[in-house]
Design a protein around this nucleic acid. Structure first.
Lengths: 140, 140
DNA sequence: AGAAATTTGTCCGTATGTATC
DNA sequence: AGATACATACGGACAAATTTC
């Protein structure tokens, strides 16, 4: 546990994990990554290690951090990144919570949720649709 | 006095002190703890150290913190009940395509889709629900 | 209604001491 | 010896939610 960096250093492994979450849409474009303190808890890594991992992603332009605010995923949804991106593939709208979502978020059915939809295209055709839901009103 | 952690770290000692004040009633249930700025002055510790101490108590459910408001002692309404058993954080099921998804995937309404749902928790509560949709049979 | 002050949340940079590969 | 990593601690700054004036 202390410092076994078999092959790959820890901060790179953490960077890989976070990169996957972003690329799979688990952390949708424009969303905030968990705070450094939350990541230290989740990965049970020191803050310096977490910051090193995020620095890797920042260098890849996969995230951008605002001082005092947080670290955002995919800040380049308006500028074509790797692909020429024929269409904007992100949209956000307000929807009502269906019974299942209401139970998960512990809110009333019909409560306002933010739905962020992203599309993943392969060869021009839509391969995956990702919908991320979060409560509009934190707290209640 | 830079950073000697002989024996017990400072944030634990501070947490112990605050815990005792709560348990002895010096800080009654529902009352606000002194602000972080006040605690930094009292213990002559950095704010980060104070916040670490409070984080310990928060984990013990001895206090609860509201952004912009303060940290309360003994939140009596802790009916949360530590969850009814860990829910799976990733589940997969087959659903029928709604009109929007059907259009995106270019299939008929009602066609079979795979929905993969993931939950992202922050501090134990569901913060985001991710639903990823794919067509069931990717017959080229 | 609006501005200011308070308070918590988050990030930044740095530093020390310890331990392991 | 050097790189990696952990745990702890400091101080500063900006952001956001809440309260007070």
């Amino acid at each position: 546990m202390p410092t076994p960096h078999y092959g790959q250093p820890r901060y790179r492994a953490i960077a890989d994990e976070l990169r996957e979450r972003i690329e799979t849409g688990a952390i949708p474009p424009g969303a905030l990554l968990p705070a450094e303190s939350a990541l230290t808890a989740e990965f049970r890594a020191a803050r310096g290690t977490i910051r090193q991992a995020i620095a890797v992603l920042r260098e890849e332009r996969l995230v951008a951090t605002d001082h005092g605010r947080g670290t955002y995923a995919n800040p380049s949804w308006n500028e074509s990144g790797l692909t020429e991106g024929s269409e904007p593939k992100r949209s956000e709208r307000q929807v009502a919570a269906d019974p299942e979502l209401a139970a998960l978020f512990d809110v009333e059915v019909g409560a306002a949720l933010i739905e962020q939809q992203s599309l993943i295209r392969a060869n021009g055709v839509v391969g995956t649709v990702i919908r991320a839901y979060r409560v509009l009103w934190t707290k209640q």
